[in-house]
Design a protein around this nucleic acid. Structure first.
Length: 613
RNA sequence: GUCCCGGUAGCUCAGUUGGAUAGAGCAGGAGCCUUCUAAGCUCCAGGUCGCAGGUUCGACUCCUGCCCGGGACGCCA
C-alpha cells in the first residue's frame, strides 16, 4: 500500500532538499512541512528555512529560495512559492491529488497497520458492584472504548480490562445488609443492591464522632442515648459485614454464591448500558479486583523484600525519594488497599498480558494515586516485559462531569441520576427529532417503520451524547447539558451523521452502480473539491495521531472538519446535476469516499452512522 | 501548607506539540430551499489568549513569578 498522506511525500522531498542546502544528515532534519491554515498560502507549507537562517548565516528568504530550487516535487506539486519571511508554499497538482485519493480509496482507507511488539491494555469503565452507573462512568467507558478501537484499528492486540470493584468491605456490607433483610438473592435488581449499598454506608457512618460531639457539647441525655444506640447498631452491622467478608474470603459456598449473584445483577445492567452506548464491552472484559486477591500479599512482601517498603505506624508504606507523600499498601490491621490491587494489576497486565502500554482511563482526581503506583512499579521493575523491554504506563485522566451549577454532578440522597436514565432521555429526544422529520413527505425517512425510526433516533441521541463528551480535551471538566448536546446543530455528532446520511441518499439517488463509481477517476479541480480532498487525505494521519496521543478529540475535530468540507462541496458543486458525465462520476466517487471515511471515523468513535436520517 | 490541573469571543469549547491576520458552535444581526436532505450554507459583529517578565527571527504554545478557579494530599475506593 502506498502512503496516501501528502505530508509523507512532501516531507521526504523537503528533507532531501534541505540536506542539499544545509549539508546536514537527512535523518536528523525536521522538514517542518505542515498543512496550511489558509488556502491562500497553498495546501502545505515548509517552514524549515526560518530556523536555518542563523546556522547558515543567510537571510531566511534566501534559504527558502535555495530549498525551493533544490526540492524535487515532480508529479507531486506545482512550483513552490516563497512568501513572507521565508515560508515555502506548496500546492499539490491535480494529478497527485487524484492519485492519492485513489490510494486512499482502498479497503484499508489508507490506514497502514502499525503493529506494536506488545499488547495494549486499556483499563476502562471501572464500575462497582451494587452501584448504579452514573455519568462519571460514561467517560471512563466511552473514552476507553475509543482508545481501544483506535489501537485495534492499527492492528494492535488490545486488552479491554473492566477492573470492576467486586471485592472488599463495601460489597460485604451490602451483602450482609441484604441477608439481614432476608432478601431472595435470585430476585434482586440493581436498584435493590444500590439501596442496600447506600443504607449500609449510612449505617456504618453513623458514628462515634457524632456521639463524641454530642457528649462534648452537653447535648441532652435523650440525644446522647439515641446516638449511642445508632453507634451500637452500626457496630453490629460492621461486625456482621466483617464476618461476611471473612466467609467470602474463606470461600464459603453459600456466601460465594450470593456474592456471584450480586456481580451478575450488576453486570447485567452494565452490559446492557454498554450495548446502548455502542461500546465494545462484554462479560469477557471483566476482571475485577477479586481476581487479584491472592496476589496482594505477595505484592506487599515483594516490596518489603526489595527494601522498597517499610513499616510506619503499623502500616506498610512505599516511600518516594522526590516527595513527602508515601504510598500506603497495607493497613495497620493487615488489610490491603486499592493501591495494592493496582500494583498487582499493573504487574499482571505487563508480565502476563504482555502489555507494552498500559492505559488507565480514570478520573483526573486519581492523578496522584497513579503517579504513585507507576513510580512504585518502576522502582520494583514490574514494568519489565517478558522480553526485557519496559512497558509504558499512562493515566488518561478525564475531568469531572459537572451540573449546571458547576458543582460535580453527584447523586443526591433520594435523587437518582443514573446513566441509564440519562441515556433514555437522549434516545427519547433523538427519536422525537427523527420522527418529526420523517413526517415530512419528501424526507428520506418518510414511510420507514417505527422500529426503524427508533433505531435511527437512538443512534442520533446516543451519538450526540458521546460526541459531546469525546470532542473536548478529556482532562477538562465539562458541564453536562443535555439540551446543548442534543441541539443537533453545529459541532455535534448528529451533524456528522447527517453529512454521512446525506451522501448515502445522494449515491442511492444517482442510480449509478458501485463498479461505475469506483471505476471512475477522481478529478478534484474546484476549490471545494480540493479542500474536501485534502481533508480526506489527512484521515490516516489523524487516526494514528489520535491513537498515539490518546486524544479522541483530534479524531472528532477532523471528522467535523471533513463533514464541514463536504457541506461546502455539496453547496458549491452539483453532483447529480454536474455539467458532464465524467464530472458527475468523479464527484460521486469523491462523495462515496467521503462517506466511507465518515463511517469509518464515526465507527472508531463508537457512533452509529445511519444511512438515512 | 505541599503538590497537581485548568484560565482563549457574552456562553460552551478547539488550537495539529514554536510559524503568516488565534478558530468553531451556540446566542445576536443580514441573506440562501419551484436544483442533489435547511440537522445545511454564506456574510456581519464579537479577543489586552488570566497578569507580568524571560527565551526565540517568531510564543496561545516553552521557562519563571504572581492572580483566580478546581482538585489531591496514610489506614475509603
Amino acid at each position: 500500500m502506498r502512503p496516501c498522506d501528502p505530508l509523507l511525500h512532501l516531507e521526504r522531498a523537503f528533507r532531501a532538499a534541505i540536506s542539499k542546502v544545509s549539508g546536514n544528515d537527512p535523518a536528523s532534519i525536521d522538514p517542518q512541512v505542515k498543512a496550511s491554515a489558509d488556502p491562500r498560502h497553498g495546501d502545505f507549507q515548509c517552514n524549515a528555512a526560518l530556523g536555518l537562517a542563523k546556522a547558515l548565516q543567510a537571510k531566511p528568504r534566501e534559504i527558502a529560495e535555495r530549498i525551493a530550487a533544490a526540492v524535487d516535487l515532480h508529479g507531486l506539486a506545482e512550483t513552490p512559492e516563497i512568501a513572507g519571511p521565508g515560508f515555502i508554499n506548496i500546492r499539490l497538482s491535480t494529478e497527485a491529488l487524484a492519485g492519492m485519493l485513489s490510494d486512499l480509496d482502498g479497503p484499508e482507507l489508507g490506514i497502514a497497520p502499525a503493529p506494536l511488539p506488545h499488547a495494549v491494555v486499556v483499563d476502562l469503565c471501572g464500575v462497582n458492584v451494587a452501584k448504579q452507573m452514573h455519568v462519571g462512568h460514561l467517560r471512563a467507558t466511552i473514552i476507553g472504548d475509543v482508545v481501544a478501537r483506535l489501537h485495534e484499528r492499527l492492528g494492535r492486540k488490545v486488552w479491554r480490562e473492566n477492573h470492576l470493584g467486586d471485592w472488599g468491605l463495601p460489597i460485604a456490607m451490602t451483602m450482609a445488609s441484604l441477608r439481614r433483610q432476608g432478601r431472595d438473592f435470585d430476585r434482586l435488581t440493581l436498584e435493590d443492591l444500590n439501596t442496600a449499598y447506600r443504607a449500609a454506608q449510612l449505617e456504618a457512618r453513623t458514628d462515634e464522632a457524632g456521639l463524641a460531639a454530642a457528649l462534648s457539647t452537653h447535648a441532652g441525655p435523650h440525644r446522647v442515648a439515641e446516638l449511642q444506640a445508632q453507634s451500637d447498631s452500626a457496630g453490629a452491622a460492621e461486625r456482621d459485614a466483617k464476618a461476611t467478608l471473612l466467609k467470602l474470603q474463606a470461600g464459603d459456598a453459600a456466601t460465594v454464591r450470593d456474592w456471584q449473584r450480586l456481580i451478575d445483577v450488576t453486570m447485567k445492567e452494565v452490559l446492557a448500558t454498554a450495548r446502548t452506548l455502542g461500546v465494545k464491552l462484554t462479560a469477557e472484559h471483566s476482571r475485577g479486583e477479586s481476581f487479584y486477591r491472592d496476589r496482594l500479599g505477595p505484592a506487599v512482601d515483594a516490596f518489603l523484600k526489595a527494601g522498597l517498603a517499610k513499616e510506619d505506624d503499623a502500616a506498610i508504606v512505599v516511600p518516594f525519594a522526590d516527595r513527602e507523600r508515601p504510598m500506603l499498601i497495607r493497613k495497620g490491621d493487615g488489610g490491603f488497599l486499592y493501591a495494592t490491587t493496582d500494583l498487582a494489576a499493573v504487574r499482571f497486565r505487563v508480565q502476563e498480558l504482555d502489555g507494552g502500554h498500559v492505559i488507565y482511563v480514570v478520573d483526573a482526581r486519581q492523578r496522584d494515586h497513579f503517579k504513585d503506583v507507576f513510580d512504585a512499579i518502576r522502582l520494583i521493575g514490574w514494568d519489565r516485559l517478558p522480553d526485557g523491554s519496559r512497558a509504558e504506563l499512562s493515566h488518561l485522566a478525564f475531568g469531572s462531569v459537572l451540573g449546571k451549577d458547576k458543582r460535580p454532578l453527584k447523586t443526591r440522597s433520594g435523587e437518582n441520576y443514573t446513566l441509564a436514565a440519562l441515556l433514555d432521555e437522549a434516545v427519547h429526544r433523538g427519536v422525537e427529532q427523527v420522527q418529526r422529520r420523517a413526517a415530512e413527505a419528501d424526507a428520506p425517512t418518510h414511510g420507514l417503520s417505527q422500529a426503524e425510526l427508533h433505531r435511527i433516533g437512538a443512534a442520533v441521541g446516543i451519538g450526540a451524547v458521546k460526541y459531546a463528551d469525546l470532542s473536548g480535551d478529556p482532562v477538562r471538566d465539562y458541564v453536562f447539558d443535555l439540551d446543548r448536546m442534543i441541539a443537533f446543530e453545529g459541532d455535534t455528532g448528529p451533524y456528522i451523521q447527517y453529512a454521512h446520511a446525506r451522501i448515502a441518499s445522494l449515491i442511492a439517488r444517482s442510480g449509478e452502480s458501485e463498479p461505475a463509481i469506483i471505476g471512475s477517476a477522481f478529478h478534484p479541480v474546484e476549490p471545494a473539491e480540493r479542500h474536501l480532498s485534502l481533508c480526506l487525505l489527512r484521515f490516516p494521519g489523524v487516526v494514528l495521531g489520535a491513537a498515539e496521543q490518546l486524544a479522541p478529540q483530534r479524531l472528532c475535530a477532523a471528522l467535523h472538519e471533513l463533514a464541514n468540507a463536504y457541506a461546502g462541496f455539496y453547496q458549491d458543486c452539483p453532483v447529480l446535476k454536474a455539467p458532464d458525465a465524467a464530472t458527475r462520476l468523479a464527484r460521486l466517487r469523491l462523495s462515496r469516499l467521503t462517506r466511507r471515511v465518515l463511517a469509518e471515523g464515526l465507527g472508531l468513535l463508537g457512533i452509529d452512522a445511519p444511512e438515512r436520517m
